[in-house]
């Protein structure tokens, strides 16, 4: 017999998970139900969290209101709303590439994290933003940086009984870009993706890649180059040799494989193209525009 607990508060959900730590947490179900229908995941007990109001919505925190706290139940459609898109444009751009409108209405940010797929569309953005994941259980709350949360191909750091409640990202002053390559113009799993965010006051560029390694990877050497050579005051386009070097260093961070969605050679090549385009767009002297 399968039990489905429909939680209406975080405490409810935590209590249900406490008594049955093996239960599956289901929010939008857009990943889970695919596995169930395909027969690759047996349905055990389920804790449904899609009716927990505390998991929806977002707020600004910190002394200068420069930290955005996103409820784990924030949907991809929510993320693409203009009010949120202007705070984290790359996250909105990434959310817009997820599935169809129906899927975006159901799929949540927390679910994308929990699935921890190498192709998870929001993950490169969260990696570039140094996002922090808030986890709750009946034992209390803990926070993990993204790279300690997503630890392998579809492996996350959740312990039994634990629930993702929120994601914190900084609200940065500077352009953001998310670019995703797929072999279809919509509703496609990323063959490779790239997120680039600029922190003008901090004079840094952070770039992260999706679908080219088991987990989202940062291109640290490319970031160092960009911090040294980019014009954070005038935001002018970097010289060609800087762009080319940035593209090479970014591609070097990729560790792609061959699979049925694309070859490793193509992925590496595509990363360099995306890197070139992203840095030129970000430093084009024009303010970044949301998706």
């Amino acid at each position: 017999m399968v039990t489905v607990t429909i939680a209406t508060s975080i405490d409810d959900a935590c209590a249900a998970l406490d008594s049955d730590p093996g239960a599956l947490v289901m929010a939008g179900g857009t990943d889970l139900m695919v596995e169930v229908n395909r027969g690759t995941r047996l349905v055990g007990n389920v804790v449904a969290v899609d009716r927990v109001p505390e998991l929806r919505g977002w707020s600004l925190e910190g002394d200068r209101s420069d930290v955005l706290r996103l409820g784990a139940g924030t949907t991809c459609a929510d993320l693409a709303e203009p009010s949120l898109a202007k705070l984290v444009p790359a996250l909105a751009q990434a959310a817009r590439t997820v599935g169809s409108p129906q899927i975006r209405n159901a799929a949540t940010l927390g679910g994308n994290l929990a699935t921890a797929s190498p192709a998870g569309d929001t993950l490169p953005v969260l990696a570039a933003l140094d996002a922090e994941v808030e986890l709750r259980s009946s034992a209390g709350t803990r926070r993990l940086p993204l790279d300690e949360f997503v630890v392998g191909v579809k492996v996350n750091a959740l312990v039994p009984g634990e629930l993702i409640t929120a994601i914190r990202v900084p609200v940065l002053n500077g352009p953001q870009e998310f670019l995703k390559v797929g072999t279809r113009n919509a509703m496609v799993i990323a063959v490779t993706s790239l997120a680039l965010v600029v922190d003008r006051p901090g004079r840094t560029v952070r770039v992260a890649l999706g679908s080219v390694a088991p987990v989202p990877v940062r291109a640290i050497e490319a970031e160092v180059l960009a911090a040294e050579r980019c014009d954070f005051d005038g935001m002018s386009v970097p010289p060609d040799e800087v762009v080319e070097r940035f593209a090479i260093l970014t591609a070097d961070a990729a560790r792609p494989i061959d699979d049925h969605r694309g070859s490793a050679a193509y992925r590496r090549h595509a990363v360099s193209v995306l890197a070139r385009r992203a840095i030129r767009r970000a430093f084009s002297g024009v303010p970044s525009v949301a998706a």
């Binding site: 590439t97 998310f178 670019l179 995703k180 390559v181 113009n185 919509a186 993706s193 995306l274 385009r277």
Partner: peptide, 13 residues
């Protein structure tokens, strides 16, 4: 443009 929702192409590409 080619790439669609993935925002990969600028007009000159």
């Amino acid at each position: 443009r080619p790439g669609g929702a993935g925002r990969t192409a600028d007009i000159d590409d």
